[in-house]
Nucleic acid binder design. Sequence first.
DNA 1: TTGCATCTGCAACTGGATTGCGGGTAACGG
DNA 2: CCGTTACCCGCAATCCAGTTGCAGATGCAA
Lengths: 157, 157
Amino acid sequence: MPVYRPLSSLAPVVPQAPLEDVSARIRAQGARATPARIAVLRMLQTASRALSHADVEHALADSGFDRVTLYRVLDWLVEAGLAHRVADSDRVFRFSLAASRSPEHARHAHFRCDDCGRVFCLEDVRVSTPVLPAGFTSKEVQVSVSGACAECNARPS
Amino acid sequence: MPVYRPLSSLAPVVPQAPLEDVSARIRAQGARATPARIAVLRMLQTASRALSHADVEHALADSGFDRVTLYRVLDWLVEAGLAHRVADSDRVFRFSLAASRSPEHARHAHFRCDDCGRVFCLEDVRVSTPVLPAGFTSKEVQVSVSGACAECNARPS
DNA sequence: TTGCATCTGCAACTGGATTGCGGGTAACGG
DNA sequence: CCGTTACCCGCAATCCAGTTGCAGATGCAA
């Protein structure tokens, strides 16, 4: 079981979707546009990689949201279909924004760096559903690639 | 977060590889052929699906192996290249026998039933490595399909 | 048979995630 | 603009798969 280097801090979130749009999107799900939901959703929108609860908690530490609140917001996002959740190989859930209009059968691909532990979303990946045994029906196909990211490959160590 | 029906008990393990073969395979890795390793390896050899630690613990309850011993045996199997470990979407590790002579880049596919929570190994799946960003290198590609298994599709409920 | 490196059992611990509940607040109707 | 209320949040306790430290047992090679 490898021990990962600490995650590099997230880049400061500079350009964000207008607050009204985010709030409206939340209300469109029949839910309240609370500060926690708005903050987490905006963060996911600008993230270039799948974020763990710890990532979110750390990045929003100044906002004073409770740990549990963030768990619930992330759960809600998944339930509302706004985000995907994948259990990473380190037994940690990671969250990434769902495609705005995802097809019925969601396809998703992630890359995990064995060295730094970061998880990147792979866009543009065509995944074909494998042939299943008789009677089996598929709902979702997830592809996860592990290896070394560019940054870690470049690092001398 | 779905709640899964209890796992149906594993079918009684009837036909097994000869004990000598299993022991020899363990010693071939430069390790001791202990009762726990033999029992777990035989169990994986006859399993038609990926097993969790709980599955193994339950099935071998009569043998009196310690919980921790089973964890360590499973870890050792993975380290020795005799088994694969995947973190399931319920944050539980599942183990399946590795192909006898796996290529350098291991490819593996699993099917997870959203209803009963069981995980099946999909053989005969050709997985192509997705195109990665510049500088990224891949080591392993995992494909996991979720949906409903034949048994749960057949069940009226 | 013996030496000893390796393996096991026990108990305590870790950390991500979940739950229960009392108090707070967003959003609707007026 | 204000009251009502269903939904949401903070807090603290809890859960549970997995891990660690250590003393004692054991496979196995000499």
